[in-house]
Simulated scan of single mutants.
Amino acid sequence: MSIITIIGAGQMASALSFPATENNNKVRLVGTPLDRNIIDTAKATGFHTTLKRQLPKIGIEYYQIEDVNKAIEGADVVICGVSSFGVDWFADNILSIIPENTPILSITKGMVNGEDDKMINYPHYFLSKVPSNKKLSISAVGGPCTSYELADKDNSEVVFCGDDINILRMFKSLFETSYYHISLSTDIVGVECAVALKNAYALGVSLAIGLAIGFDGSGKEHYNSQAALFGQSLKEIKHLLKLAGGGEENIIYSGGDLYVTIFGGRTRKVGTLLGQGFSFEQTMKKLKGVTLESIVIATRTARYVRGLAKRGIVKLSDFPLIIHVDDIINSGAKVDIPWKAFESEKI
């Protein structure tokens, strides 16, 4: 039995308690300052208010953020379970209290823009925030897996990535079950880039849903247009993976994650509303209070592309979909899919 401390009581972080406890591990679920109601309710009833599921009855303890030191003490591993909006909070408040010999696994998907708008994945960003005299091992989770279906024990294929294959094997032993299947990779850049980009492009594909159903929602959802945008997304992501220095084989994680994200959730709602003709401001008002990581990732990805184009490394015309998404959410452009720009001629 191992002690697994999870910092952040969001949906995916909490869903991981299912495979973890099934493997006879002890889970300590710690809420961030924004998770107080989740922790209070779960502690009293076992019900997770946003995951909408009963959490495991055995093997899980609940902590508010004030008790985070107690929750980390004696833990064998720590899971970073915050959203991309909580990355800096985790870096500033949690990394410093995690012992050097305690491996960290991050479930947060995304990246930040560094110097020259370079894309930096979260494990490397976290390490840049650690004092030079402190050594931490930070791995991450990628791949197509929704929190509620993990909690329902639907078969899911994910990948754990990190610098140390032995640490990754240890993490795999803690979480792998008959329904939670785990591959391992030491290509952190490739995996993290692949799964971060899917949020930006899922928004782009979802524009077709809104265009099809129309402003009043009376239309019928079409799939040819979604498939076309899906294919263009993979084309652009594959190019970005190569530019970022990640292996192109990681496109399978983008593809799978893109597929599952388009079928439901927050990113689909954003793209659908924009496609229906609502302005970005109207869309944000309708989704007030919803964590919208896709907006952040799309903006950062476009910034990266624009920076490369400014230096003559790429052409903006190589990335028509993400540039159009960026124009919609950051420049007030109306949805007008650049279909002709997707065409190519191969001889």
Rank of each mutant, 00 (worst) to 15 (best):
S2L: 02
I3Y: 06
T5D: 08
I6W: 02
I7C: 06
G8N: 01
G8V: 03
A9E: 00
S14L: 07
L16H: 08
L16Y: 10
F18M: 04
N23W: 00
R28Y: 03
L29S: 10
V30E: 05
P33W: 07
K43S: 09
T45M: 05
T45L: 07
G46I: 04
H48S: 04
H48C: 02
T49H: 01
R53N: 11
P56F: 02
I58S: 10
I58V: 12
I58F: 07
G59V: 07
I60N: 05
Y62V: 03
Y62C: 06
A71F: 06
E73T: 15
G74W: 06
A75T: 10
V77Y: 12
I79Y: 00
S84L: 00
F85Q: 15
G86K: 06
G86N: 06
V87C: 14
D88I: 15
W89N: 14
A91W: 08
N93K: 14
S96A: 15
I98R: 13
E100I: 15
T102R: 01
I104F: 01
I104G: 01
L105I: 15
S106A: 12
T108R: 10
K109G: 01
K109P: 03
N113R: 05
K118M: 14
Y122V: 04
Y125C: 10
Y125S: 11
F126I: 08
L127F: 01
S128L: 02
K129T: 06
V130R: 06
V130F: 02
V130I: 11
P131Q: 03
A140P: 04
A140W: 01
G142A: 11
T146Q: 10
S147I: 14
Y148K: 13
L150H: 12
S156G: 04
E157S: 13
E157G: 12
C161D: 05
G162P: 08
G162N: 09
D164M: 10
D164E: 11
D164A: 11
L168N: 10
R169H: 13
F171M: 12
K172V: 09
E176D: 08
Y179T: 15
H181Y: 00
L184F: 09
S185A: 01
G190F: 04
A196Y: 02
K198W: 04
A200G: 07
A208H: 06
A208R: 13
S218H: 15
G219Y: 06
E221T: 14
S225W: 07
A227W: 12
A227L: 14
A227F: 11
F230I: 10
K235C: 00
I237T: 07
K238M: 09
L241C: 06
K242I: 11
A244E: 11
G247W: 09
N250M: 09
G255H: 13
L258Y: 11
Y259L: 13
G265V: 12
V270E: 03
L274H: 15
L274D: 14
S279M: 08
E281M: 12
K285H: 10
K286P: 00
V290F: 06
I297H: 00
L308Y: 05
A309R: 09
G312K: 05
G312R: 03
I313G: 02
K315Q: 02
P320C: 04
I323T: 13
D326N: 15
S331D: 08
G332R: 08
V335D: 09
D336F: 04
I337R: 07
K340L: 01
